[in-house]
Design a binder for these strands. Structure first.
Lengths: 334, 334
DNA sequence: TTGAAAGCGCTAACAA
DNA sequence: TTGTTAGCGCTTTCAA
């Protein structure tokens, strides 16, 4: 059960092993008859080409590395699945590394991928400093960040138009008759979050709506737990908002929990609007209306970007994806 | 920004490149002074070893391939994350391939991984025929199936003790005072599902409980949708069960939806018990009590198995993991 | 303790 | 159209 190599095929076929290589790579400089014959022998001998050896000489691995903050996070796992599909369509495999939201580990994983000579790296950032964290590696391997806005010129990235997403949410609420809303979960230090919050402010002011804020001071992520706490505080002394626009679905889920606990009915007493459209939100018992980040589109854009930079040199590019509203049952018309 | 190789390091350090290799691999046959000096130069020149070249000569890649039916499925993504962690601890990276529940694609992905010379393959099966589907590949690469029971001797696998899981669920229901239950979602052709169903029957008979069945005839997976349909049919002409034990959490979620729609209150009017403990079930609004498959343990066992078979030859092994009950709020004491 | 050199399985330039 | 051959960057004998 030893691994069959090209040389043994050559011996059996009575040709040089270069000829076998040509047959396999579909090179035009080979006779149809020989090709057929060789291919048949390969098949019979169950030959599987050694990608490692091939990578070595071709100086490409056909592997895209992915460094993600989490594999299990519903938003990210959906993104990764879409990245896998998009990569596969272009003939690439994925090497997925988990940073567990840890900047040090993220760095190690990134470096590892470089050593593995992947053809490109897609990063789903562990934190807001990820791009800075990874900027030390001078490399000609294309790197694309997904889902987080970066400073322009800092690095290539794919993100939704967060300001537009905020506007879409606010306009929807406006259309539903809401004039006084709470924006929950704004936070410092994240460009993505500032863009959303600023978008909300701008849209509200243009539409003549009143907006108040409940900021997320927790150092951690935008977790359900944070949403729960924030909403709980709000419900303790409500300020008359008829709708809560949450910066992320996780926060919204937490806010929903707090509302349930406080006996505040959704959407009868208050409307809740999320952001991201993670899989949880579509459950019948949840029915969260939310601003969607189109993950498949983002994944496609990331793959396109990473592969185009491979051939065209490494200017910093970025792609902005249009978000859209997914209407369910957590918001009511008033 | 050309890639630095071992030769250039050698030149700078004024040693042969074999010596550099030794310094890097921590070989004992080298002087401390030289090692230090070489390592420092590597650092300064930002040398990153080429894993591809190394793999070629060492005949191992330190990569574990994963073929999964879905990356996004909550059960599987949790499993994959745990596999990544366990693999990393042992110095391995993951190459994750998605079969999208398609047996043909699953085969291609498997073969691809073989070509990439991964050191082992973990398969999260696309269907009940997966092991058969993949049995054509004679290879000395260890393969371990996770999450499905297989015929013994067919291949190596890791699965929970499904009969025990069924018993745990039934005993819990018994303890809560239920004597008449419905088992929802039994299906043909899957050893895993038969084991669960048989376990339920056996436990019920031993405890003197009455159990009826609502079988899953849909050819597809154990989806929420199937659970919804099945439960809907049941609620149309209920047979007096006080609890529904669902073969999977997805089915249970669907059953919950059907109950909500039919005005059947959970747990007041009927109790629902799931199986798997996928992340969805822990949401406050769901609160599904369920029999957990311990994913981290399963992942660890799979990695252990795949790596041990690498060194010890390829007998077929299997590991059985003990499931446990996670109590939430979907079952009531009567 | 170090160096020289073979070779891992393959591709691609060059010859024939 | 096919064969010969030189590497790709590294590890690992074998010699020194």
């Amino acid at each position: 059960m030893e691994k069959v190599t090209i040389k043994e095929i050559a011996k059996v076929a009575n040709v040089s092993y270069a000829t076998v290589s040509r047959a396999l790579s579909g090179s035009p400089e080979i006779g149809d008859a020989t090709r057929e014959r060789i291919l048949k022998i390969c098949d019979e001998m169950k030959y599987i080409p050694d990608s490692v050896a091939r990578s070595m000489v071709r100086k490409r691995t056909d592997i895209i590395g992915v460094v993600t903050a989490s594999i299990n996070n519903p938003f990210m796992s959906e993104l990764i699945e879409a990245i896998e599909v998009a990569a596969r369509e272009r003939g690439y495999n994925l090497m997925v590394c988990n940073s567990s939201y840890d900047l040090e580990l993220e760095k190690r994983q990134f470096s590892l991928l470089l050593g593995r000579r992947v053809d490109g790296i897609i990063v789903i950032p562990a934190g807001h400093d990820t791009a800075k964290n990874l900027s030390g590696y001078e490399t000609d391997v294309p790197v694309v960040y997904v889902s987080e806005n970066l400073q322009d010129g800092e690095a290539s990235y794919v993100a939704i138009d967060n300001a537009a997403g905020a506007r879409i949410g606010v306009e929807y609420l406006y259309k539903m008759g809401h004039r006084n809303i709470l924006y929950l979960g704004r936070r410092e230090g994240s460009l993505t979050h500032s863009l959303r919050a600023d978008g909300v402010i701008k849209a509200c002011s243009e539409l003549g709506m009143n907006v108040s804020f409940k900021d997320n001071l927790s150092s951690g992520k935008s977790s359900m737990d944070a949403g729960y706490q924030l909403a709980k505080e709000y419900f303790a002394s409500p300020a008359g908002a008829t709708a809560i626009f949450c910066a992320t679905d996780s926060l919204a889920l937490g806010a929903m929990h707090a509302a349930d606990e406080a006996g505040v009915r959704i959407p009868d007493d208050i409307s809740i609007l999320g952001f991201d459209n993670i899989s949880f939100t579509s459950l019948p018992r949840i029915g969260m209306t939310t601003v969607e980040q189109p993950k498949a589109e983002m994944a496609q854009a990331a793959i396109d970007l990473v592969l185009s930079e491979r051939t065209e040199g490494d200017q910093k590019n970025s792609r902005s994806i249009k978000p859209r509203l997914v209407e369910r049952t957590s918001c009511r018309r008033i």
